[in-house]
Design a protein around this nucleic acid. Structure first.
Length: 243
DNA sequence: AACTCTATCAACCGCCCTCCC
DNA sequence: AGGGAGGGCGGTTGATAGAGT
């Protein structure tokens, strides 16, 4: 006793949609909407397609508010952050990116970001053995002592009082958060100051672009310079400058 | 030029959830 | 209350284009 199929697979067309089919579906939906029933829609519209196929075609391609083309760095940043937080819940991630579909994000993740992460992980394995011994600060040494754990994603040691937050936007540096703080943005290696970006305030429903203290940025990237920043955080807990 | 490999992305599959009768 | 139908979603596949040899 299997589940009843949604349509007769032998009577429906499969594969790439033709421009004519697209036009029929688009015209029908513009005139009548879905009618709350995708399964019955193809017959009404005169399409030899499965209702689910029509729904997918509309949602992923024909909808007027769909944004096609390459992802911006900001979008990639949001995807990385959310994936690290909630995993492969593509529809939720898509809801944070206007005009992007879950399918598109999923494809982008699988074809681009995942590869970046893999490459970074390989690099990190090498880097871990060198950088963990490099920092001179005793605070840092304490932070990366045997009490720390290793982040499964980046393979970097997670210092005490910090939690792993995946990789930065370029996927070339692990990012860590001081526990209890909601957000970590990237550190500028030249100035040592932390940046805030618009999508970050968006992610956490911060009231405005200029966040308040509750959304304070107290994180760092595990590169050599940031060990120094971490040293400051751990030794005196002073808020870091923003720019 | 021909062939192979790789990346990309549209589309399908099938499971799970929700809603309605 | 529970069973069925439809919708939603994540995983996977397969076609195709472009790069490499």
């Amino acid at each position: 006793m299997g589940r009843t199929p949604c349509c007769d697979k032998s009577k429906v067309k499969k594969g790439i949609w033709s421009p004519e089919e697209d036009a029929i579906l688009k015209n029908y939906l513009n005139k009548f909407g879905t009618g709350g029933n995708w399964i019955a829609l193809p017959q009404k519209a005169g399409l030899q397609r499965c209702g689910k196929s029509c729904r997918l075609r509309w949602l992923n391609y024909l909808r007027p508010d769909i944004k096609h083309g390459g992802f911006t760095q900001d979008e990639e940043n949001i995807i990385c952050n959310l994936y690290n937080r909630i995993g492969s819940r593509w529809s939720v991630i898509a809801s944070h990116l206007s005009g992007r579909t879950d399918n598109e994000i999923k494809n982008y993740w699988n074809s681009k970001i995942k590869k970046k992460l893999k490459a970074t992980k390989t690099n990190s394995n090498t880097k871990t053995t060198t950088t963990t011994t490099a920092p001179s600060s005793s605070n840092v040494a304490a932070a990366t002592s045997t009490n720390s754990t290793v982040d499964e994603v980046t393979n970097f040691p997670v210092p005490e009082n910090f939690m792993a937050n995946g990789l930065n936007a370029n996927a070339d540096q692990p990012v860590f958060l001081l526990e209890g703080f909601k957000y970590c943005s990237s550190v500028n290696n030249n100035t040592g100051l932390f940046s805030q970006t618009q999508q970050d305030s968006y992610l956490f429903n911060s009231p405005s672009f200029g966040m308040d203290e509750n959304y304070g940025v107290k994180g760092f990237q595990m590169d050599e310079y940031s060990y120094e920043v971490l040293s400051n955080v751990l030794s005196n807990g002073s808020p870091l400058n923003w720019y």
